[in-house]
Design a protein around this nucleic acid. Structure first.
Lengths: 346, 346
DNA sequence: TCCCGCCCGGAGAGCGCTCTCAGAAACCGG
DNA sequence: CCGGTTTCTGAGAGCGCTCTCCGGGCGGGA
């Protein structure tokens, strides 16, 4: 019933708007696109016709001639399980969505899990269906940045890219949280409460975020004992293993900076099982400030907060700026400050 | 450098493929679209040309004539904070993405936060840019289902819709977890371990999932005491408030079915603070089986598991089926079974 | 060998829009 | 009141593709 009325073949075209308004298609088009250079009287007539018919421009037709899609792709390489267990994912998308909506652009979400997906995504991006790309969570082997670059598609990366030469590449723009600075904040805090044997559990070291956090730790403990460093993987299990390791290697440790809240929850568990009180015997600082974890460990987790949503927004803004002004040189990358949130664990 | 080669105006068209292969545009098109009715010799020539030029069809042009976008919209009404704090969101999207990728369709993600967003989304959907819609987490006032229906766009809803008359609407298709059955499972389990004064903390009762879970609880406790029911809101704080309430009203309770894991983590905290041992004094069963919570409460949470990703996949499959066969009557809605995961809390 | 039917390939229209180009209308000063 | 500008408007081409015809070629039956 309603289907026959609005669905099917019945969508009004510019042609019909023009006819109803008694003007040419060109004039109607001008009005629809801002109305510059059209006398007020005509403009109004067209606007009335648009309203009356419920006209909505056909994007496909428009794209065909303008070569502008008003859509950007968000590519997420999924193996980073972190994206799915933490609320990172949602927060990023929310930030992106908000910024995109403000500019009346759409978001096409592309999740990659395996080789075939990357191929599919490459094909899709080659199709010219989007005007730009937001890339996340790259691991070394990800072919997407290369593809995107080859296609000449503007893009912005989330997180500092880690492949060789990335830093120095001219038009490479990324947005990252200040992982290194955050780690320093954590260690500094532990020191300020009098801790002296500060250990750390890192993330997987093939991710720049992990490396940067470890570097931050080392910045303040340049001649620290390597025994105080355990390599984790951003999972709770990793936290458990890391903490057990540390405890057996350096039973005298009095603090630990854990590179993610999830791992920290595992670490705290191990500490308690080992009879160490937190924070009295061992102080713990996490990283991420994931609400659903940090606020719910026992004791509540002192951690480093990062502005995930802000990161998404910023990436989007940078990308849109590049789109609107393709001539301009690449904007410089941005590092978003992190800060310490003190709760009970340290 | 590479930009001039592949970017800019240089993308090969069907025309150029046809020319290189020495056939007409029509034949090239036939090959690109499956090659039915083209002799093998010609087909091969075209395929070679496609490969050589790196031809990728221009979707905008294709859409313009076929009226098929090979894209579907995923609309998520965001105020359901649950979608962002729990990993639900990501899991759903993953399921959808997988199924969509298999059918070579794209996902356009639309997040709605306020009135203006709904308007924007309505406009976008009217634009005919997507072939179908996946709707999530509807609250009563959400205008989107109405819009989508008016546009004659095929759609599938995630979660049982709650507005009046929804159930009986002809072409309304939804996919939901068996909330009611899951709740029954929970209560049944509590009974089987000998509990007799079983309370519950519900979700917000304007959501069908909450209502259904409460109904399941009541199914097994038809003449239960209303004092044993506290209304929560799916947040940890809600769990705290609910549990405190229950404890003061019925200090003799020996079990509680909490309608979400997040709330359960709050509830357990309250119980422990009140000196009740879990599960010895009070057994707790949650709902959702959110890994990052259920496996990390102390004690680990016994809960009802739902297959979120499967739900996303199923929704997508149903939608695609409708798209491919618009004539067929609406498929019937699907309820995905939930099951009990026994850990330590009950 | 001829004719009919079938299959394959090509010509061309047209999807809905933008944008250039040129002509019409309005406006100014002289 | 007229010519020269300047401002508006309309005609029409064309974006890249699909799909409907239609004609040509080929095979088989008479």
């Amino acid at each position: 019933m309603t289907e026959s009325e609005a669905g099917a073949g019945g969508r009004p075209t510019l042609e019909s708007v023009a006819e109803l308004a008694g003007v040419s298609r060109a004039t109607a088009s001008r009005v629809v696109n801002g109305g510059a250079g059209v006398r007020a009287a005509l403009r109004e007539k067209v606007e009335r016709a648009v309203a009356e018919l419920g006209y909505v421009p056909n994007l496909a037709a428009r794209t065909l001639v303008t070569r502008r899609n008003r859509a950007i792709a968000v590519v997420i390489a999924e193996p980073e399980a972190r994206f799915f267990s933490d609320p990172f994912f949602a927060q990023h998308l929310r930030g992106i969505s908000r910024e995109l909506a403000a500019a009346d652009n759409q978001m096409v979400l592309l999740l990659a899990e395996d080789e075939r997906d990357h191929e599919r995504i490459g094909r899709y991006l080659s199709g010219g269906h989007v005007d730009g790309v937001l890339l996340f969570s790259l691991h070394r082997s990800d072919p997407t940045p290369e593809t995107v670059h080859r296609l000449g598609l503007p893009f912005v990366i989330g997180g500092r890219p880690g492949w060789p030469g990335a830093e120095s590449a001219r038009d490479l723009v990324y947005v990252d949280n200040d992982n290194r600075g955050g780690a320093r904040l954590a260690v500094q805090h532990l020191r300020s409460i009098g801790r002296e044997r500060i250990a750390t559990i890192t993330g997987p070291l093939d991710q720049t975020s992990s490396v940067d956090r470890l570097d931050g730790y080392r910045d303040l403990l340049p001649d620290g004992d390597e025994d105080l460093i355990a390599v984790g993987d951003f999972t709770a299990d990793g936290g458990i293993r890391g903490m057990s390791e540390l405890l057996s290697r350096r039973p005298d440790l009095d603090a630990v900076f854990v590179a993610s809240d999830v791992m920290a929850s595992g670490a705290i568990r191990v500490l308690r099982a080992a009879g160490r009180r937190v924070p009295e015997d061992v102080a713990v600082v996490g990283f991420d400030d994931v609400e659903s974890i940090a606020a719910w460990t026992e004791p509540r987790l002192t951690t480093i907060r990062q502005e995930i949503e802000e990161m998404g927004r910023l990436m989007t803004r940078l990308l849109l700026r590049r789109l609107n002004d393709p001539g301009a040189s690449a904007p410089s990358s941005v590092i978003i400050p992190t800060h310490l949130v003190v709760r009970e664990s340290a």
